[in-house]
Design a protein around this nucleic acid. Sequence first.
RNA 1: CGCGGGGUAGAGCAGUGGCAGCUCGUCAGGCUCAUAACCUGAAGGUCGUUGGUUCGAAUCCAACCCCCGCAACCA
Length: 481
Amino acid sequence: MDRNKLYITTTLPYVNAEPHVGHALEFVQADTISRYFKQKLGNENVFFNVGTDEHGLKIYRKAKEEGLSINEFVDKYANRLKDFCKLFFVEYDNFYRTSDESHHKAAQEFWKRCNDKGDIYKKKYSGKYCVGCERFITEKELIDGKCPDHGTEPEEKEEENYFFKLSNYKEHLLNWLDTNPDVLKPSQKIDELKQIINDIEDISISRLRESLPWGIEVPNDPQQVFYVWFDALTNYVNVIGFGTDEKKLNEWWPGIQLFGPDNLRFQGVIWQGMLASVGLEHSQKLLEHGMVLGPDGTKMAKSKGNIISPFDQEEKFGAEIVRFYLLVGISTYADSAYKEDDLINMYNSRLANNFGNLLNRVIHLSKSKGVKINRYELVESDFKSKIDAFKDEIERLYEEYEIALAGEKINELADWGNKYITEREPWSKKLDIKESEVILNNLSYLLNTVIYYYTPIIPQSCKVAKKALLEEEKIILFNKI
RNA sequence: CGCGGGGUAGAGCAGUGGCAGCUCGUCAGGCUCAUAACCUGAAGGUCGUUGGUUCGAAUCCAACCCCCGCAACCA
């Protein structure tokens, strides 16, 4: 890390539906990275942004459907997401909303700069228009040449819109990837990203106000509004001072961006082209997490009845167990099936049997032996260097954003602790008190390390564990399920 | 048809040229400080199929088979 400030952001969920388990994955991953670095660099050196994308026709329609004003509607879903964050201990520093006035101004400023650069032009756009939907429908959306919602054949319609000259940046983006091959995780996806760039075309970035009533006005053209994602993407820099505070912006940008598999094109290509247009650096890191599949290993769908609800899971197991499973139990970057049996297994073996049980063994023994633990000056140097080797490895993994692998390494450390205590038998009557004292202090050092590194993943439990260890208070931290 | 990812022990995965590994589960033994936990050991795999390169292939090459994603509420 060459800077000591770190900016991390999720994508902004579109607020037309309930938060689902995929959001949970992205948010807790981002939260874990944020917590890790806050712990290491200090809170003031990490900025963690989440938020909601609130414009667009779908939202406009959905609000009408629910009989709410647009403002009531977006407030409702934004609050839902805030509650969701609270429920899963996602501790963001800012909750961004694209309906905020400040966002409108910043997005318009972004537009102006792209325009000044000569990257925006007006062009007649022709496409299939569904009268029922009052919008253009892409070829792919059509079913048998008909609108999927209305079952009617769309008509050919022409509309004049603004376009962004993404094609200007084709060579630039390819070059950027060649010189920064590590920017994307997982690395296997780099070819896919390059392929998308190769197929780059200029993209339409506005709509007529009459066909898209809920959007941001294009500068100097009240007839046109931003096409949703063009305004939404700008949030990543707006929130850290774009257009308002250059000094702040330079402090925090470039940042780390998390997103799902369907967003590679937006985050990895379009957004990067937009950044190039306004003369900003590219993102520091693009982290494309895997997709959470249903228990049967296929994509969740209502029709298949394999939907996992994060709210149900929370109610059933508690937020931290769900966090633990999402972060450590499934792969960080590959698609994975969500299986409750695996969740239960993972929790019981790693947290209850391994970590929790070791914590209890050590606290219990220190009490029964009448020995003070947490005196790190008593820790043997051989033992300490063994633990420090684990520390280095765990930090390396966290700093490569390999959350699941870091979690696995932490588990290994606790596992090694259980082997160590069995081998050294601090409970044995053959040992004198001094020897037991050293062994138990070694172990309290180990446990403290485990707690420290588990904290970004399961913050609440670790808080309790830390207190219990410090006050030598016997507890069942993780009840078996 | 195409594009991308993947097929390794019952389950989940690591392993990109040199005697097949990890976690969970199963079985046997041990320990007893602890949450029926913990420790030790064992069983279990023709590494998707076929062919090729090589002294040597899970690993490289070719063809093929199967699964998942790329369209939908959606990360």
